[in-house]
Nucleic acid binder design. Sequence first.
DNA 1: CCCTGATTCGC
DNA 2: GCGAATCAGG
Length: 227
Amino acid sequence: MSWTDERIATLKKMWEGGATASQIADELGGVSRNAVIGKAHRLGLKSRPSPVKANEQPKAAANKPAAKPVTAKKPAAKPAAPKPAAKPVASAPSPVASASHAAIPSQPIPNPTADLPKIVSVGPGGFLRQGPGEQQAPIPPAPPRRLVPAKPSPEIADKTSLLDLSDKVCRWPMGHPGEPHFHFCGEQVNPGYPYCVEHCGRAYQAQLPRGARRPPPPLPFGGPRVR
DNA sequence: CCCTGATTCGC
DNA sequence: GCGAATCAGG
C-alpha cells in the first residue's frame, strides 16, 4: 500500500480528530500502526496527548546532547553521529507541574502555575479539552432515576455501527467519526469489495489522463463538512 | 500482557 | 520516504 492523497487526508483527519494510530491503521487497511505513526510524524503532525510523553524537561541552554540512554541498548558498535540538540520546544514553560527531581542543577524552574495562556483544544465530537485546574462544572446533580438498560439512541438504532461491520456490508463511512450520527453505509457489498456497488464507484476510479482531472470526489471521513 | 505514541535506522 | 523494531509510559 502506498500513501495516496486520499489516504493521507484520512490519516490527517483521524489523527487530528483524536483517533489512535491503531484505529487509523486498520481503518486505512494495509498499513501497520507504526506506519501510521511514522507517516504522521513525517507529515509534521505530532504529539497529541501521548501516554508516554507525560514527562518532559525543558533542557535550558546547557547540557550535552550526548548521553543517549536509549541507543546504549543496541548491540553497541554504533558510532552514531552525535545528534545536534533536541528541538527547542518553543513557548511557555511546560505546564507539567511534576517537579520531579531530575538531574538538572542550576536551573530554577519558573513557577509553572503563574499566568499561563489557556490552551484549549478540541477533541473528538467537539468537546473542549480542559487544562488542569480549569474544572468548572462542580458536581453533576445525579437526579434520581430508575436505571434502565442501555439502548442505542433512536437516531442510530437502524444505522450501521462499527460493531455491525462485516464482510457482507458496505463499510463506507457516513458522516464524521466521533460525531453522534456517524455510521457506515451498511448496504450489501459488491462481492469481493469492502463497499457496496455505489461506493465502489467512489472508491475505485480509473486514472484519467493528466490534465483531464476532475475535481476531487467526496472522501471517506468527509472532506469539508457536508451534511 | 494489553494498550499508547516516539524514535531509530536499514531499506 | 517508508515502516519494523524498539523504547517508554499507562
